[in-house]
């Protein structure tokens, strides 16, 4: 367990020729890219481009069928030890059937943090995301926006070096979306690397430092946000930005 506390960061994360095959279909192929140790990357592309899949591969929920994914500072850490230094927020978070506070405490329970410590960290996280008043409420009865913020608070207590967010606002109304975007900025300010998928152009413009553009399982572009939005290199990205249907 001691190597968890080694101060060396996991990042950067390097993907080399990563592919994922399901049946006789290449869902992802030939992805080579690197996530540096800071910043906010937006993963964009039309539906079915492989955005969620790419994030799951990076997070270690799935194994690539070809190529390699390497954490620079990962050393010989196993999948679980690696995942405990990352966090992921899903489009529809799975909250446990217990109180909001207990949900935030759960990852700390897994890490063996003492009861008192857990309570303190959870309360701090709930407060940070404006959920203090809901701490004792069953998580499953919260609204969609509250649930997503709770998922962010749960990620927060893990002190992740990198946070993956898979279309976290696609089912939310504008106010809740704004709250999630603020939360993402909070993570960023604390030094957490952000990798987030979205097909909301406005959101991408507000948040992105750089953009990864996927289409039909291929990486077509990885460029600074400004470049991407003003002068996309690929025809597909240009069409996507214009709002045309791309597949």
């Amino acid at each position: 367990m001691s190597d968890l506390r080694v101060p060396v960061g996991l990042l950067p994360l390097a993907l080399r020729e990563v592919g994922f095959r399901h049946g006789d279909q290449d869902l992802l192929k030939g992805i080579t890219l690197q996530f540096g140790s800071s910043g906010k990357t937006l993963v964009m592309g039309p539906n079915g481009a492989g955005k969620s899949l790419l994030m799951r591969l990076c997070h270690g929920l799935l194994r690539p069928t070809e190529g390699s994914i390497r954490w620079h500072g990962g050393g010989r850490l196993g999948g679980q030890a690696l995942r405990r230094r990352q966090a992921m927020v899903f489009q529809r978070p799975v909250l446990l059937r217990r109180s909001a506070r207990a949900n935030v405490e759960y990852p700390l329970v897994l890490q063996g943090v003492s009861r008192r410590q857990r309570r303190r960290q959870a309360d701090a996280a709930l407060e940070r995301f404006g959920l203090s008043a809901l701490a004792g409420r069953p998580a499953r009865v919260l609204s969609g926006g509250e649930q997503q913020r709770l998922a962010l608070a749960r990620a927060w207590v893990m002190r992740p070096e990198i946070l993956f967010l898979d279309e976290p606002t696609s089912a939310l109304d504008p106010a809740a979306t704004k709250a999630v975007e603020d939360a993402v900025l909070t993570f960023h300010e604390e030094g957490t690397r952000i990798v987030m998928s979205s097909h909301n152009l406005g959101q991408a413009r507000r948040l992105a430092d750089d953009v990864v553009f996927l289409c039909r399982g291929r990486l077509l572009e990885h460029s600074p946000a400004e470049t991407f939005f003003t002068a996309p290199a690929s025809a597909e990205a240009a069409a996507f930005l214009r709002g045309d249907l791309v597949w």
Binding site: H59, Q80, P107, R154
Partner: peptide, 12 residues
């Protein structure tokens, strides 16, 4: 329903 989320949170 839970598998991915629990794995992500670091549960074996």
């Amino acid at each position: 329903e839970y598998a991915e989320q629990l794995k992500s949170l670091g549960a074996s």
